[in-house]
Design a binder for these strands. Structure first.
Lengths: 132, 132
DNA sequence: ATAAATGCAAAGGTTTTGCAAGCAG
DNA sequence: CTGCTTGCAAAACCTTTGCATTTAT
């Protein structure tokens, strides 16, 4: 019943996300993919992102007021959002002390958690404070 | 140069957020405020929220794909988003182990962090699994 | 060949802006 | 009085949809 086809557009979009160092926004995905497919329309990007999400190959992250997408299967991780350049990176160290299934004071049953760290990425930090 | 005026609209909107148990979305703020100011326009809500944010009296939280606003000055805290009823609560216990100004592997300089816990709120948890 | 997928353009929502009228100072 | 604020409506944005054409199978 579901006859999903493999197309050049889908392959390119999936690869763009695979190769990214962190989650990307719709516009970024579009721009990166257009390097290979100049006629790629934004509607296809939206449709493909939705499709890949349904297939559980990528998943959306809400960060900085934007919906970003990243590939799944990179294990438990969190994000670092650079307050200077705005890029988002993936971190593999988890700073949260939470026994899974912890119950918080008040009776809140925790099933999952999401952490975002804000600050300066290595590149921006190297440029020193005040420098532009 | 900045001649900021005190108006009924601004007072009401600020109070709505003060009295809320957790962050509210634009529509919620509008609805609550309209209880007192029936002719309040949505544009004024947007403008006032931006204003209060610039004044650092409130600040935006990005949760569940929506931008919510909460008053500042409630100390360091995080949020709990109930996966059953969708309400967002404020938690005053921080599960993050982060010496302030920590530098993460790779050279990421952490200035702040945001944590969201997902699970069941006390009320929903009491209703037992499966119950509706 | 056949039907899914694409690109374009139009439609839907949400947030922002322009402007005359309404108020705070 | 003066000019910041407001409410309304139009504009700007972002995301989704409709449809003829292209393309994978």
């Amino acid at each position: 019943m579901t006859a999903r086809r493999s197309t050049r557009q889908r392959d390119v979009i999936a690869r763009v996300l695979q190769d990214a160092p962190g989650p990307l926004g719709v516009t970024e995905v579009h721009a990166c993919a257009q390097a290979e497919l100049p006629r790629l329309g934004i509607a296809t990007v939206y449709r493909t992102l939705k499709l890949l999400t349904e297939e559980r190959r990528i998943h959306p992250v809400l960060l900085d007021g934007e919906t970003l997408y990243e590939t799944v299967g990179r294990g438990h991780h969190h994000h670092f959002s650079c307050t200077r350049c705005g890029r988002v990176f993936t971190l593999h160290t988890c700073p949260v002390t939470l026994p899974s299934s912890a119950v918080y004071p008040g009776g809140f049953v925790v099933e999952a958690h999401e952490v975002t760290l804000y600050g300066q990425c290595p590149e921006c930090a190297a440029r020193k404070t005040g420098a532009h």
